[in-house]
Design a protein around this nucleic acid. Structure first.
Length: 926
RNA sequence: GGGCGAUUAGCUCAGCUGGUAGAGCGCUUCGUUUACACCGAAGAUGUCGGCGGUUCGAGUCCGUCAUCGCCCACCA
């Protein structure tokens, strides 16, 4: 006998253990030989991560699909794993070290990396257990990590191959540099933030003219938001068509403070409408200026260190071509080493002192910030590794265009195309220690060798250097002779962008580059489930890498779900610290309740704003099902395989089987179409509003009756329907349903399989007549209840029923269902009459008028009011439908079945109207 | 500056290919029953953001405006 309430805390761990001990989720578990494959790769959570609502939603949806397909008999793999999360993880361990006053740079690189591995072993990956608590049915035996041996092999393979194909190269250009984390980051890791800044107007004196701040013929005014970069200016640009400046093109200005002579160039980049129409050009510190510099062969002078502090007096690049007078020297010395913001203030002061500051105005503008470090990023001139993304994007675009990969909802395809078609070179190198170190080695002359191993690189280097006469050949030969080959090469210090390895996830986790059986079976995977925030970071890159290395798209469907937002509608993120903890909800209401809530809220293309009250509501739903089972058990409901459903005789049984068929279709179709909310909703309605509210209630008199055959049939049918309910709900509420499945195995019986391996239902039972009969019964009972309630009839009072105008069908039904009606509507004897008795409440159901002769109990005013309201309602309907039908254009243009349906409606409304009016008239008379 | 999405019951949200609205929570009243008070019964509540248009008919399609949100973008 079940307890009155379901104890999630006790059951969930028990069921989890049961699944684990039986390897229930191993790849292909429960599937027949040769079954169709269904694979999902998990979006690998960060090893530093802990379960937040986004994970909970993401993994709930995946688990629903996976459990559903597993039950449908497919050969299912849900591939789990974690991401090493380069910057995030390195920051965590660095923070820990700082607590012991140790800086990363105080350690050897290998020592630091070892510490990160230690950290991972101890406190990394707690999210895996949290996912298990959620019920995620991954094949945990196949768990992978982006830095493990196999995946690292794949990373090296890809890097080397792309390099040799010319799709990956090293380039010196401006990158987004994070001066706090001291690494390059990709465009995607830059967030634009609006800043209330200022716009400074500077006068740059013309060379060879005596500068006079009052005389605008002696200078050119430029405007800037970043005064400190002026130290690296190498030109002023004006628009070629700008009449104001035409005569100045080709002349030079003297860069204030520095004293460098720089040219005025004509370039279309300069916008006559903006600022003063003349713009300072700093190729080493601005992306646009870099391009202008290239066009005009200008020098790019970097004036900052990686920490974004000024470097001038010892910066050869800066000093080159500069006439450093003592005055200049002292000014520069005063600026040396200043942080960029401090430098900004100081530069403005110096400009003002010299009379070069023309104006300052407040200015709102967007400033790029690093999404991890949170500080403004600096365009910085460095050598980095780039992937030719435009080339790889081409087949990735085609795959979606041709429908080989579909986005659900489809609207995301536009986002994907927009980005892919304008894709920039992808900077994949990072100046970190934690990650895949780039497999590139440099010879003494800086020549680069990209190979899978150091041995290969050395081999390549030796061949390369020995082949050509020269100093390198001698040096290498000398090193070899002295048995010091290790000194020939130096390895590239940098590691790869974390997304580089995640881009390979759909095939690297399956064993690539080896052609493993798993790879053959499960690639391409079936569905990728993810939030839209990582379409660019991850989905796009998996598409590129998958197509390039596997020649096939990595998944057929990308299901893009909404983001779970906080109560203000803001995106939840670790860095913002506004996460609601799903574990607390699991603790309070159970994993099933949380899962069901997330599923029913996951309408396509909508944000999910989570209200804990709903979780409580769906926990109640679980309890309801639990108690329905409990009730069934109390009445001897048990599996009876000898009973042939088709032989069910009772209308209620034939009805519930029909409704079950309908509900099953709804749930099945909805899951298959990724309409999780519809699926959950359909199951909910069937269980609560049909099975519990009506079927079990209608069964009560059957169970109390003497009729053994009816009882036995109902017990068998109820047991069958419950089993099907467990199956339908299992993808949503796996723990409770698995428990109920076990607890309803029957006398001495054990289930032949776990519920998670049971076959998904595909019932075919349909009996329209039974359906309409029970719907009539429901309408009748509801009508009587409604009247009783509105008439304030005491609940205990049992009223007789007088039926007027009933046809044969209705009369038969009244006899057949008398027990149920009596019980559910609290009525006694049923009799037939030609005229309704005096002082009775009247309900119109189809052709019959059902009367409750309440005598003294009846409140005539109330009844009159009630009937008037009914009449008014029906009259309104009649008027509406009549207006419609008398509109000839409607009759002429609307579809036939629509018109027919309206006619039918009219007839019904009119009949009801007549009867209700008659009823009202009788009440008035009495 | 470009793009996308939202605006439906007090709250949170459904509403597929057009036939005039639903759920959960909350609220009101009442609780006799072979499970369930995490329950049952009955009930109230909506100019479907505004304005136009297409259509016999629009919450649903089109245009436009308003408000809010998100994404992308190098603008001095």
């Amino acid at each position: 006998m079940l307890d009155k309430t379901y104890d999630a805390k006790a059951v969930e761990p028990k069921i989890a253990r049961l699944w684990e001990e039986s390897d229930a989720f191993a790849a292909g578990a429960g599937a027949a030989e040769g079954a169709e494959a269904f694979a999902i790769v998990i979006p690998p959570p960060n090893v530093t991560g802990s379960l937040h609502m986004g994970h909970a939603l993401n993994n709930t949806l995946q688990d629903i699909l996976v459990r559903f397909e597993r039950m449908r008999g497919k050969n299912v793999l849900w591939q789990p794993g974690m991401d090493h999360a380069g910057i995030a993880t390195q920051m965590v361990v660095e923070r820990q070290l700082m607590e012991q006053q140790v800086h990363r740079r105080d350690l050897e690189r290998q020592e630091f990396v070892d510490r990160v591995w230690d950290w991972k072993a101890q406190s990394g990956g707690i999210i895996v257990n949290q996912l298990k608590r959620l019920g995620a049915s991954c094949d945990w035996s196949r768990e992978r990590f982006t830095m493990d041996e196999g995946l690292s092999t794949a990373v090296v393979e890809v890097f080397v191959t792309l390099f040799k194909e010319g799709l990956l190269y090293k380039d010196k250009r401006l990158v987004n540099w994070d001066p706090k984390l001291l690494t390059a980051i990709s465009d995607l890791e830059v967030e634009q933030q609006e800043v209330n800044g200022q716009l400074w107007h500077f006068r740059y004196p013309l060379a060879g003219v005596r500068f006079d701040p009052q005389d605008d013929k002696t200078f050119v005014t430029v405007a800037t938001t970043r005064p400190e970069t002026m130290l690296g200016d190498t030109a002023v640009a004006v628009h070629p068509d700008d009449a104001r400046y035409r005569k100045m093109v080709g002349k030079q200005v003297v860069l204030p403070i520095v004293g460098r002579l720089i040219p005025i160039v004509a370039d279309e980049y300069s916008d006559p409408e903006k600022g003063t129409g003349a713009v300072k050009i700093t190729p080493a510190h601005d992306f646009n200026d870099f391009e202008v510099g290239r066009r005009h062969k200008l020098r790019a002078i970097s004036v900052m260190t990686p920490e974004a502090k000024l470097t001038l007096t010892e910066n050869d690049d800066f000093l080159e071509g500069l006439d450093v007078t003592p005055e200049v020297r002292s000014r520069l010395a005063g600026l040396e080493g200043l942080d960029r913001f401090e430098a900004r203030r100081r530069v403005v002061e110096l400009m003002e002192e010299g009379g070069y500051l023309a104006a300052v105005e407040p200015h709102k503008h967007m400033v790029p910030h690093g999404d991890r470090g949170g500080v403004p990023i600096e365009p910085f001139l460095t050598d980095q590794w780039y992937v030719n993304a435009a080339e790889l994007a081409r087949p990735a675009i085609a795959a979606v265009r041709e429908g080989r990969t579909k986005f659900v909802p489809k609207a995301w395809e536009k986002t994907y195309f927009d980005w892919m078609e304008n894709i920039q070179p992808w900077c994949v190198s990072r100046q970190l220690w934690w990650g895949h170190q780039i497999p590139a080695w440099y010879g003494p002359d800086g020549h680069v060798f990209v190979e899978k191993t150091e041995e290969d690189a050395l081999h390549a280097a030796i061949q390369h250097y020995i082949a050509h006469e020269g100093p390198m050949k001698a040096l290498v030969e000398d090193l070899l002779e002295n048995f010091r080959p290790g000194e020939i090469l130096t390895r590239d210090e940098d590691v790869l962008d974390t997304w580089f390895s995640s881009a390979l996830w759909p095939f690297s986790t399956l064993g690539w580059p080896d052609r493993t059986p798993e790879l053959q079976t499960y690639y391409p995977t079936s569905v990728l489930v993810t939030g839209f925030d990582i379409i660019f970071f991850w989905v796009a890159r998996m598409m590129m890498m998958g197509l390039h290395f596997m020649d096939e798209e990595p998944f057929h469907t990308v299901y893009v779900h909404a983001l779970v937002r906080d109560k203000n509608g803001a995106k939840m993120s670790k860095s913002k610290g506004n996460v609601i903890d799903p574990l607390e909800l699991i603790e309070e209401y159970g994993a099933d309740a949380l899962r069901f809530t997330l599923a029913i809220l996951a309408a396509q293309g909508r944000d999910v704003k989570l209200d804990p009250a709903r979780v409580a509501g769906y926990r109640n739903f679980g309890t309801k099902l639990w108690n329905a089972t409990r009730f069934a058990q109390m009445n001897g409901v048990a599996r009876n395989d000898a009973f042939w459903l088709r032989d069910a005789k009772l209308t209620i049984n034939r009805w519930i089987l029909t409704e079950l068929t309908r509900a099953t279709r709804e749930v099945t179709e909805a899951i298959a179409a990724f309409r999780f909310n519809d699926a959950a909703g359909a199951a909910y309605r069937f269980v609560w509003n049909l099975f519990c509210d009506w079927y079990l209630e209608l069964l009560k008199p059957v169970f109390m009756d003497e009729d053994a055959a009816a009882k036995a049939e109902s017990q068998a049918v109820a047991a069958f329907v419950l089993d099907e309910i467990y199956k339908l709900l299992h993808p949503f509420m796996p723990f409770m349903t698995e428990e109920l499945w076990a607890r309803t195995a029957g006398e001495g019986g054990e289930r032949s399989t776990l519920l998670c391996h049971a076959a998904w239902p595909s019932p075919e039972f349909e009996d329209a007549a039974a359906a309409s009969e029970i719907n009539w019964l429901i309408e009748l009972v509801s009508g009587i209840r409604s009247v009783r309630s509105e008439m304030n009839v005491p609940p205990a009072a049992i009223a007789p029923l007088v039926v007027v105008g009933a046809n044969r069908t209705t009369s038969d039904r009244l006899v057949r269902h008398h027990a149920a009606i009596a019980r559910l509507a609290r009525v006694g004897e049923v009799s037939h009459a030609v005229e309704p008795p005096k002082s009775s409440a009247q309900i119109v159901v189809d052709e019959a008028t059902v009367c409750l002769p309440l005598g003294e109990l009846i409140d005539l005013d109330a009844e009159r009011q009630r009937l008037s309201k009914e009449v008014a309602r029906v009259t309104e309907e009649v008027a509406r439908v009549m207006a419609k039908l008398s509109n000839e254009r409607f009759v002429a243009n609307a579809k036939e079945d629509v018109v027919a349906a309206e006619r039918q409606k009219l007839a019904e409304y009119q009949e009801a109207q007549e009867r209700l009016q008659a009823a009202l008239a009788r009440v008035r008379d009495s």
